[in-house]
Amino acid sequence: MATAVIVSPHWWETNPGTLLVVPIDHVEHLYVLPDALTGPLLATCRRAARALVEVEHCEGTSLRQHNEPAGNQDVWHLHLHVIPLWTGDALIQGEHRLRPVELADQHTFAAGIREAMCWRDGVSPW
């Protein structure tokens, strides 16, 4: 089962560079995630988080995932947010304002993430 990393079209104002990790096949939410996809999905999250550290020079990362309306799910395809963090940043302190990201900026950021996640000469960057 395959997964993908997508640059989010919205970033937290104080935390630029949010990524979304998604299964390629449709999975509505965590409750119906096939066991066979759990490992690959988390492995992709790990690779995306390491790429964020390399590209954004962040001090940490966070994963977020929401299920059903009461859980604040608003996109009906399972996805995990991989968010860059810095010590004392506003997101951890409860500041949750999103801003739209220009498509050109998404493409530029994606190029850096893609490079950081690529295997070079058959060798994993990690």
Rank of each mutant, 00 (worst) to 15 (best):
T18D: 00
A4V: 12
D25T: 12
R114I: 03
D74H: 14
A4C: 06
R114C: 05
Q93W: 05
P40C: 04
S62Q: 14
E13D: 08
A48I: 13
H29D: 15
Q65D: 05
A4W: 00
S8A: 15
T3W: 06
D121K: 10
L78Y: 08
H81T: 04
A90K: 07
E68Q: 13
C58Y: 04
A111D: 15
A116I: 06
E13L: 12
A43R: 13
W119V: 09
W76E: 10
H10W: 14
V21S: 11
S8R: 02
H96W: 09
R97V: 14
A110Q: 09
T44P: 02
V22R: 02
V75R: 08
V53R: 14
V21F: 02
A48L: 09
A49L: 03
R47M: 05
W11Y: 14
L42R: 07
I113A: 05
V32L: 01
C118M: 13
L33S: 04
L37K: 04
A4H: 03
V55D: 03
G94C: 10
T14Y: 04
N15Q: 15
V22H: 00
A51T: 05
P100D: 08
L42F: 15
E59N: 02
G17Y: 00
V7D: 00
P23N: 12
C58R: 01
T38K: 12
P16L: 04
I24D: 13
E102H: 14
H26S: 07
D121M: 04
A4G: 09
L37C: 08
L98E: 06
V75S: 02
V22Q: 07
G88C: 08
A4I: 06
L20H: 06
V21Y: 00
R99M: 12
G122H: 01
A104T: 12
S62I: 00
A111P: 01
D105H: 11
I83A: 01
T44M: 15
V53A: 09
I83M: 07
T44L: 04
A48P: 07
E115K: 07
P9Q: 10
H26F: 13
F109E: 03
L20R: 12
G122M: 03
W119Y: 13
H66A: 13
L80Y: 05
N15I: 00
D89L: 07
L41I: 13
E13M: 09
L78G: 07
L78E: 03
A90W: 00
I83E: 02
N15L: 11
P69D: 13
L78Q: 06
P40H: 11
Y31E: 12
V75T: 13
M1A: 14
A116Y: 02
D105P: 01
L98V: 07
P23G: 07
G17W: 01
G60L: 01
D25K: 11
G88P: 05
L63Y: 15
W86L: 03
A90S: 11
G112K: 10
E59L: 01
V7Q: 02
D105T: 08
G39L: 13
A51G: 08
V5E: 08
V21G: 06
I24R: 10
G60D: 12
D121Y: 11
F109Y: 15
T18W: 00
S124T: 09
L37Q: 13
L42N: 07
L19W: 01
P34Y: 14
Q93V: 00
G94E: 10
E95W: 02
N67V: 15
R64K: 14
A43T: 08
